[in-house]
Amino acid sequence: MSINRREFLKLAGFSTVMGLTGSSVVDELLKTKAEASQVLVDEKALSAKRWAMVIDTSKFKTEEDYKSVIQACHSIHNVPDIGNPKDEVKWIWTDTYEHTFPGQENEYIPEGIKHKPFLLLCNHCYNPPCVRVCPTKATFKRKDGIVMMDQHRCIGCRFCMAACPFGARSFNWRDPRPFIKETNPEYPTRTKGVVEKCTFCFERLARGLKPACVEKSNGGLIFGDLSDPKSEVRKVLSAHYTIRRKPEIGTQPSVYYIIGTGGNENA
C-alpha cells in the first residue's frame, strides 16, 4: 500500500487534531483535584457588596499623619522605594488639590487647601476602565467591588495604565526586590514586567482586618460597605458633603473625599 503526499498530509493533520483533543480528554478523566476537598471563605473574613472609603482630609494635619498611613501600606505590601519618578511604584501617595482634582481648582480656594497634600490611591471604580481593557482578565472586579490584580496572569501590556484616568497603576520597569528595605515575609513581592496597585488590602479583609492604611489613620480614613445604609461610610457620606475624583468620566470611584483644612485655615 502506498499513499501519496496529499493523503499523508491529511492523515498527519487528522492525527494531530485527534492527539490534541485526545490528550485533553485524558486530562479531564484524570482530574487532579483531591477527592472530597473543598474551599471556603474564612469565617472571620469581612464582606461587603461594595467596599468604599471616605477620606476625611481635615483629620490629616501633620506630615506624620500622611507618612504613617503610606508607610503602613507600602511596608506590608513590599512596595519598593526606587527613588526616581521614572521607575516609581506607589499604591498610596499624596499630591496637591490641583493635581488631585483637575478641573475643580479655582484661584481663590483657601490657602490651607491649596497647599494641603491629598491622599491618592486606586479608586476601585464601580465601572473600571482598566478591567474593561485588560486582555487576560489579570485585573478584574471582585463581587465585593474591589478592583483586583492577579500578578500571575499579567503580561505587562500596560493597557490598564493607559485606561486608568486616575494614574493609580504602577509598572515594574525593573526588578523591585533590591529596592525593598525590609521585606514582609507574609506577603509576596512583585516581579519585573507586571502592573500593580492598591487592592484595598484584600488579604487583610480575608482575615477579618480592615485595610492597613485605615487602621493607621486615626479615623481619617473610613472604610465600609457602600451598599449597606447602616455602615459607617454611609453615615459619614450622609452627614458630610463629599467629592470624588473626575466624576464626569463615569467610572464611579469608590473613594470619597471630605474637603477640609483641619483648622489650618490661617496657615
Partner: peptide, 24 residues
C-alpha cells in the same frame, strides 16, 4: 507588541483567557 510586553513569556495568556471586552 511583543517587545513591548513586560512578561513576554506569558503572551499566550491572551489566548488561554480570551477576553472579548478587551480591544487588544
Amino acid at each position: 507588541i511583543f517587545v513591548d510586553l513586560g512578561q513576554p513569556m506569558r503572551v499566550l495568556n491572551v489566548i488561554l483567557y480570551p477576553t472579548p471586552n478587551s480591544i487588544l
